[in-house]
Amino acid sequence: MSAGQVAALVAAGAFVLLVLLLAIPLIKLGRTLDEATIALRKAHENTDPLLHGANDTITHVNTQLERVDGITANAQAVSGNVSALSSVFTATLGGPLVKTAALSYGISKAVKARRNAKAVDSGKHSRRRKGFRR
Protein backbone atom coordinates (compact mmCIF):
# COMPACT_ATOMS: atom_id res chain seq x y z
CA MET A 1 0.00 0.00 0.00
CA SER A 2 1.21 3.34 -0.87
CA ALA A 3 0.97 6.51 1.21
CA GLY A 4 -1.81 7.88 -0.99
CA GLN A 5 -3.89 4.73 -0.47
CA VAL A 6 -3.40 4.89 3.30
CA ALA A 7 -4.45 8.57 3.29
CA ALA A 8 -7.52 7.69 1.24
CA LEU A 9 -8.35 4.84 3.62
CA VAL A 10 -8.01 7.17 6.65
CA ALA A 11 -10.14 9.83 4.92
CA ALA A 12 -12.82 7.23 4.10
CA GLY A 13 -12.87 6.06 7.74
CA ALA A 14 -13.14 9.65 8.96
CA PHE A 15 -16.01 10.24 6.54
CA VAL A 16 -17.83 7.11 7.79
CA LEU A 17 -17.32 8.26 11.38
CA LEU A 18 -18.64 11.74 10.49
CA VAL A 19 -21.71 10.23 8.80
CA LEU A 20 -22.40 8.05 11.87
CA LEU A 21 -22.06 11.02 14.23
CA LEU A 22 -24.43 13.12 12.10
CA ALA A 23 -26.90 10.26 11.64
CA ILE A 24 -27.79 10.12 15.36
CA PRO A 25 -29.08 13.75 15.59
CA LEU A 26 -30.82 13.36 12.23
CA ILE A 27 -32.65 10.26 13.48
CA LYS A 28 -33.68 12.07 16.70
CA LEU A 29 -34.84 15.06 14.66
CA GLY A 30 -36.90 12.75 12.46
CA ARG A 31 -38.58 11.20 15.53
CA THR A 32 -39.28 14.67 16.90
CA LEU A 33 -40.87 15.70 13.60
CA ASP A 34 -42.97 12.50 13.60
CA GLU A 35 -44.22 13.26 17.13
CA ALA A 36 -44.99 16.85 16.14
CA THR A 37 -46.93 15.60 13.13
CA ILE A 38 -48.95 13.22 15.34
CA ALA A 39 -49.66 16.01 17.84
CA LEU A 40 -50.83 18.34 15.09
CA ARG A 41 -53.07 15.63 13.64
CA LYS A 42 -54.66 15.00 17.05
CA ALA A 43 -55.09 18.71 17.65
CA HIS A 44 -56.77 19.07 14.25
CA GLU A 45 -59.12 16.19 15.03
CA ASN A 46 -60.07 17.69 18.41
CA THR A 47 -60.62 21.22 17.12
CA ASP A 48 -63.60 20.30 14.95
CA PRO A 49 -65.93 19.48 17.90
CA LEU A 50 -64.51 22.44 19.80
CA LEU A 51 -65.24 24.84 16.96
CA HIS A 52 -68.70 23.34 16.50
CA GLY A 53 -69.45 23.89 20.21
CA ALA A 54 -68.13 27.46 20.00
CA ASN A 55 -70.38 28.09 17.00
CA ASP A 56 -73.41 26.81 18.95
CA THR A 57 -72.47 29.01 21.91
CA ILE A 58 -72.14 32.10 19.73
CA THR A 59 -75.52 31.36 18.14
CA HIS A 60 -77.10 31.07 21.60
CA VAL A 61 -75.45 34.31 22.76
CA ASN A 62 -76.72 36.12 19.68
CA THR A 63 -80.24 34.91 20.43
CA GLN A 64 -79.97 36.20 24.00
CA LEU A 65 -78.60 39.54 22.79
CA GLU A 66 -81.59 39.94 20.47
CA ARG A 67 -83.87 39.39 23.48
CA VAL A 68 -81.91 41.94 25.50
CA ASP A 69 -82.25 44.42 22.63
CA GLY A 70 -86.01 43.95 22.73
CA ILE A 71 -86.10 44.43 26.49
CA THR A 72 -83.94 47.55 26.19
CA ALA A 73 -86.21 48.99 23.52
CA ASN A 74 -89.26 48.36 25.73
CA ALA A 75 -87.55 49.94 28.73
CA GLN A 76 -86.68 52.97 26.64
CA ALA A 77 -90.30 53.28 25.52
CA VAL A 78 -91.49 53.00 29.13
CA SER A 79 -89.05 55.67 30.30
CA GLY A 80 -90.25 57.95 27.49
CA ASN A 81 -93.85 57.38 28.56
CA VAL A 82 -93.01 58.10 32.21
CA SER A 83 -91.24 61.29 31.18
CA ALA A 84 -94.23 62.39 29.15
CA LEU A 85 -96.57 61.53 32.02
CA SER A 86 -94.52 63.50 34.52
CA SER A 87 -94.49 66.47 32.13
CA VAL A 88 -98.27 66.30 31.82
CA PHE A 89 -98.61 66.01 35.61
CA THR A 90 -96.31 68.97 36.17
CA ALA A 91 -98.12 71.05 33.59
CA THR A 92 -101.64 70.29 34.83
CA LEU A 93 -101.31 69.77 38.58
CA GLY A 94 -97.85 71.06 39.40
CA GLY A 95 -98.63 74.77 39.25
CA PRO A 96 -101.83 74.65 41.29
CA LEU A 97 -100.30 72.16 43.70
CA VAL A 98 -97.32 74.41 44.34
CA LYS A 99 -99.60 77.40 44.81
CA THR A 100 -101.80 75.45 47.24
CA ALA A 101 -98.74 74.32 49.19
CA ALA A 102 -97.43 77.87 49.34
CA LEU A 103 -100.82 79.16 50.49
CA SER A 104 -101.13 76.53 53.22
CA TYR A 105 -97.58 77.28 54.38
CA GLY A 106 -98.32 80.99 54.50
CA ILE A 107 -101.57 80.46 56.40
CA SER A 108 -99.89 78.17 58.94
CA LYS A 109 -97.09 80.74 59.47
CA ALA A 110 -99.68 83.51 59.94
CA VAL A 111 -101.68 81.42 62.42
CA LYS A 112 -98.54 80.61 64.42
CA ALA A 113 -97.46 84.24 64.41
CA ARG A 114 -100.90 85.34 65.62
CA ARG A 115 -100.92 82.73 68.38
CA ASN A 116 -97.45 83.83 69.47
CA ALA A 117 -98.58 87.46 69.47
CA LYS A 118 -101.66 86.62 71.59
CA ALA A 119 -99.49 84.62 74.00
CA VAL A 120 -97.07 87.54 74.37
CA ASP A 121 -99.92 90.02 74.83
CA SER A 122 -101.58 87.91 77.51
CA GLY A 123 -98.26 87.49 79.35
CA LYS A 124 -97.58 91.26 79.69
CA HIS A 125 -100.55 92.97 81.34
CA SER A 126 -99.29 96.24 82.60
CA ARG A 127 -96.58 97.46 80.27
CA ARG A 128 -98.29 97.37 76.89
CA ARG A 129 -100.93 99.69 75.78
CA LYS A 130 -103.37 99.03 73.07
CA GLY A 131 -102.35 100.43 69.75
CA PHE A 132 -98.69 100.77 70.73
CA ARG A 133 -96.25 98.41 69.12
CA ARG A 134 -92.55 98.23 69.29
Rank of each mutant, 00 (worst) to 15 (best):
M1K: 06
S2Y: 01
S2P: 03
S2N: 12
S2H: 04
A3H: 11
G4V: 12
Q5V: 10
A7P: 00
V10K: 14
A14I: 09
A14H: 08
F15H: 07
L17F: 13
L17Y: 07
L18M: 09
L18V: 07
V19N: 10
L21S: 09
A23Y: 12
A23D: 06
I24M: 04
I24C: 03
P25R: 04
L26Y: 07
L26A: 15
I27A: 14
L29F: 03
R31C: 02
T32H: 04
E35N: 09
E35A: 15
A36N: 14
T37N: 12
I38Y: 00
I38Q: 06
I38W: 00
A39C: 01
R41T: 10
K42V: 09
E45G: 10
N46A: 15
T47S: 13
D48G: 10
L51N: 13
L51M: 13
L51Y: 06
L51C: 03
H52T: 15
G53N: 12
G53Y: 02
A54F: 07
N55A: 13
T57M: 08
I58D: 06
T59Q: 01
T59N: 01
T63Q: 02
Q64T: 02
L65C: 07
V68C: 02
V68S: 03
D69N: 14
D69A: 09
D69Y: 01
G70I: 01
G70Q: 09
I71V: 14
I71E: 12
T72D: 11
N74F: 03
A75R: 05
A77M: 11
A77V: 14
S79P: 00
S83H: 10
A84G: 15
A84N: 13
T90W: 04
T90S: 12
A91L: 10
A91W: 04
T92C: 06
L97M: 13
L97D: 06
K99V: 10
A102D: 14
L103A: 11
Y105I: 11
Y105K: 07
S108D: 14
S108H: 03
A110I: 13
R114P: 01
N116R: 04
N116Q: 15
A119C: 04
V120N: 08
S122Y: 02
S122N: 09
K124Y: 01
K124A: 02
H125Y: 05
H125V: 13
R127E: 09
R128K: 12
R129S: 08
K130F: 05
K130I: 10
K130E: 09
F132E: 12
R133S: 05
R134I: 09
R134S: 02
